[in-house]
Protein backbone atom coordinates (compact mmCIF):
# COMPACT_ATOMS: atom_id res chain seq x y z
CA UNK A 1 0.00 0.00 0.00
CA UNK A 2 1.38 3.39 -0.94
CA UNK A 3 0.94 6.58 1.01
CA UNK A 4 -1.62 7.84 -1.48
CA UNK A 5 -3.58 4.60 -1.19
CA UNK A 6 -3.43 4.89 2.55
CA UNK A 7 -4.69 8.47 2.37
CA UNK A 8 -7.49 7.32 0.11
CA UNK A 9 -8.42 4.79 2.80
CA UNK A 10 -8.60 7.64 5.27
CA UNK A 11 -11.00 9.48 3.01
CA UNK A 12 -13.12 6.42 2.29
CA UNK A 13 -13.20 4.58 5.61
CA UNK A 14 -12.56 7.02 8.46
CA UNK A 15 -16.16 8.20 8.68
CA UNK A 16 -17.59 4.68 8.81
CA UNK A 17 -14.97 3.55 11.24
CA UNK A 18 -15.72 6.49 13.50
CA UNK A 19 -19.44 5.75 13.30
CA UNK A 20 -18.78 2.14 14.24
CA UNK A 21 -16.58 3.12 17.18
CA UNK A 22 -18.87 5.87 18.38
CA UNK A 23 -22.00 3.73 18.18
CA UNK A 24 -20.18 0.93 19.92
CA UNK A 25 -18.83 2.78 22.91
CA UNK A 26 -20.89 6.00 23.01
CA UNK A 27 -17.88 8.16 23.79
CA UNK A 28 -16.73 10.69 21.24
CA UNK A 29 -13.17 11.06 22.46
CA UNK A 30 -12.60 7.36 22.87
CA UNK A 31 -14.12 6.77 19.45
CA UNK A 32 -11.68 9.25 17.92
CA UNK A 33 -8.90 7.53 19.77
CA UNK A 34 -9.99 4.19 18.35
CA UNK A 35 -10.00 5.56 14.81
CA UNK A 36 -6.56 7.12 15.22
CA UNK A 37 -5.13 3.94 16.65
CA UNK A 38 -6.62 1.86 13.87
CA UNK A 39 -5.15 4.04 11.14
CA UNK A 40 -1.86 4.29 12.98
CA UNK A 41 -1.71 0.51 13.09
CA UNK A 42 -2.56 0.32 9.40
CA UNK A 43 0.17 2.78 8.54
CA UNK A 44 2.71 0.91 10.60
CA UNK A 45 1.80 -2.23 8.67
CA UNK A 46 1.14 -0.68 5.30
CA UNK A 47 3.66 -2.99 3.69
CA UNK A 48 1.70 -6.05 4.78
CA UNK A 49 -1.86 -4.88 4.15
CA UNK A 50 -3.29 -4.55 0.67
CA UNK A 51 -5.79 -1.89 -0.27
CA UNK A 52 -8.51 -4.51 -0.67
CA UNK A 53 -8.00 -5.74 2.88
CA UNK A 54 -7.53 -2.33 4.41
CA UNK A 55 -11.14 -1.80 5.44
CA UNK A 56 -11.54 -5.14 7.19
CA UNK A 57 -8.10 -4.65 8.75
CA UNK A 58 -9.17 -1.30 10.16
CA UNK A 59 -12.44 -2.66 11.48
CA UNK A 60 -10.65 -5.60 13.03
CA UNK A 61 -8.33 -3.27 14.91
CA UNK A 62 -11.25 -1.05 15.91
CA UNK A 63 -13.33 -4.02 17.04
CA UNK A 64 -10.54 -5.31 19.27
CA UNK A 65 -9.86 -1.85 20.60
CA UNK A 66 -13.53 -1.38 21.46
CA UNK A 67 -13.66 -4.75 23.16
CA UNK A 68 -10.62 -3.77 25.21
CA UNK A 69 -12.37 -0.56 26.09
CA UNK A 70 -15.41 -2.43 27.33
CA UNK A 71 -13.31 -4.84 29.34
CA UNK A 72 -11.66 -1.87 30.99
CA UNK A 73 -14.95 -0.30 31.94
CA UNK A 74 -15.90 -1.62 35.33
CA UNK A 75 -18.57 0.92 36.15
CA UNK A 76 -19.35 2.61 32.90
CA UNK A 77 -22.69 4.35 32.54
CA UNK A 78 -24.92 2.45 30.23
CA UNK A 79 -25.90 4.65 27.31
CA UNK A 80 -29.49 3.49 27.50
CA UNK A 81 -29.86 5.00 30.95
CA UNK A 82 -28.74 8.33 29.63
CA UNK A 83 -31.12 8.11 26.72
CA UNK A 84 -34.03 7.24 29.00
CA UNK A 85 -33.20 10.13 31.26
CA UNK A 86 -32.99 12.56 28.41
CA UNK A 87 -36.13 11.31 26.76
CA UNK A 88 -38.29 11.38 29.87
CA UNK A 89 -39.49 15.01 29.70
CA UNK A 90 -40.34 14.66 26.04
CA UNK A 91 -43.92 13.50 25.65
CA UNK A 92 -43.82 13.20 21.88
CA UNK A 93 -43.60 9.64 20.60
CA UNK A 94 -40.01 8.72 19.74
CA UNK A 95 -39.22 7.98 16.13
CA UNK A 96 -37.98 4.63 14.94
CA UNK A 97 -34.37 5.74 14.83
CA UNK A 98 -34.40 6.88 18.44
CA UNK A 99 -36.08 3.71 19.61
CA UNK A 100 -33.63 1.59 17.65
CA UNK A 101 -30.68 3.39 19.14
CA UNK A 102 -32.09 2.78 22.58
CA UNK A 103 -32.68 -0.87 21.77
CA UNK A 104 -29.15 -1.10 20.42
CA UNK A 105 -27.73 0.25 23.61
CA UNK A 106 -29.40 -2.56 25.54
CA UNK A 107 -27.44 -5.20 23.68
CA UNK A 108 -24.18 -6.59 24.95
CA UNK A 109 -21.12 -4.84 23.63
CA UNK A 110 -20.23 -7.71 21.36
CA UNK A 111 -23.73 -8.15 19.95
CA UNK A 112 -24.04 -4.42 19.40
CA UNK A 113 -20.83 -4.38 17.39
CA UNK A 114 -21.95 -7.36 15.36
CA UNK A 115 -25.20 -5.57 14.48
CA UNK A 116 -23.27 -2.44 13.56
CA UNK A 117 -20.94 -4.38 11.32
CA UNK A 118 -23.89 -6.10 9.72
CA UNK A 119 -26.28 -3.20 9.24
CA UNK A 120 -23.98 -0.23 8.75
CA UNK A 121 -21.10 -1.86 6.94
CA UNK A 122 -23.02 -4.66 5.23
CA UNK A 123 -20.57 -7.40 6.09
CA UNK A 124 -21.71 -10.99 5.66
CA UNK A 125 -21.65 -13.48 8.49
CA UNK A 126 -18.46 -14.98 7.08
CA UNK A 127 -16.76 -11.61 6.82
CA UNK A 128 -17.80 -10.68 10.33
CA UNK A 129 -16.44 -13.98 11.56
CA UNK A 130 -13.09 -13.29 9.93
CA UNK A 131 -13.04 -9.77 11.24
CA UNK A 132 -13.91 -10.57 14.83
CA UNK A 133 -12.18 -13.88 15.23
CA UNK A 134 -15.45 -15.70 15.89
CA UNK A 135 -16.70 -18.50 13.67
CA UNK A 136 -19.61 -18.05 11.29
CA UNK A 137 -21.97 -20.16 13.42
CA UNK A 138 -21.24 -18.00 16.45
CA UNK A 139 -21.81 -14.84 14.46
CA UNK A 140 -25.14 -16.20 13.21
CA UNK A 141 -26.28 -17.17 16.70
CA UNK A 142 -25.18 -13.91 18.29
CA UNK A 143 -26.67 -11.81 15.53
CA UNK A 144 -30.00 -13.64 15.60
CA UNK A 145 -30.10 -13.24 19.35
CA UNK A 146 -29.42 -9.54 18.99
CA UNK A 147 -31.90 -9.16 16.15
CA UNK A 148 -34.62 -10.80 18.21
CA UNK A 149 -33.85 -8.48 21.13
CA UNK A 150 -34.12 -5.46 18.87
CA UNK A 151 -37.38 -6.70 17.39
CA UNK A 152 -38.88 -7.45 20.79
CA UNK A 153 -37.95 -4.02 22.06
CA UNK A 154 -39.52 -2.34 19.04
CA UNK A 155 -42.68 -4.33 19.52
CA UNK A 156 -42.86 -3.52 23.22
CA UNK A 157 -42.40 0.20 22.58
CA UNK A 158 -45.03 0.14 19.84
CA UNK A 159 -47.48 -1.43 22.25
CA UNK A 160 -46.69 1.22 24.86
CA UNK A 161 -47.27 4.02 22.38
Amino acid sequence: MTASEYNQCVNDIADGLYRFAYKSISDEEVAKDVVQQAFLTLWENYGKVTVVKAKSYLFTVAYRRCMDEFRGRKDHVRPDLVIEHLAAPDRTPPDLKTVLQKALSKLTAQNRMLVLLKDYEGYSYEEIATLTGLNAAQVKVYLHRARKQLKDYLVSVRHLI
Binding site: Y18, L96, L150
Partner: peptide
Protein backbone atom coordinates in the same frame (compact mmCIF):
# COMPACT_ATOMS: atom_id res chain seq x y z
CA UNK B 1 -37.68 -2.56 11.16
CA UNK B 2 -34.99 -3.86 13.48
CA UNK B 3 -32.35 -3.26 10.81
CA UNK B 4 -30.43 -0.05 11.49
CA UNK B 5 -30.94 2.64 8.90
CA UNK B 6 -27.93 4.31 7.32
CA UNK B 7 -26.65 7.22 9.32
CA UNK B 8 -23.91 9.55 8.22
CA UNK B 9 -21.22 10.53 10.69
CA UNK B 10 -18.16 12.58 9.85
CA UNK B 11 -14.75 12.03 11.36
CA UNK B 12 -13.43 15.56 11.52
CA UNK B 13 -9.81 14.80 12.28
Amino acid sequence: YSVLQPEEMIFED
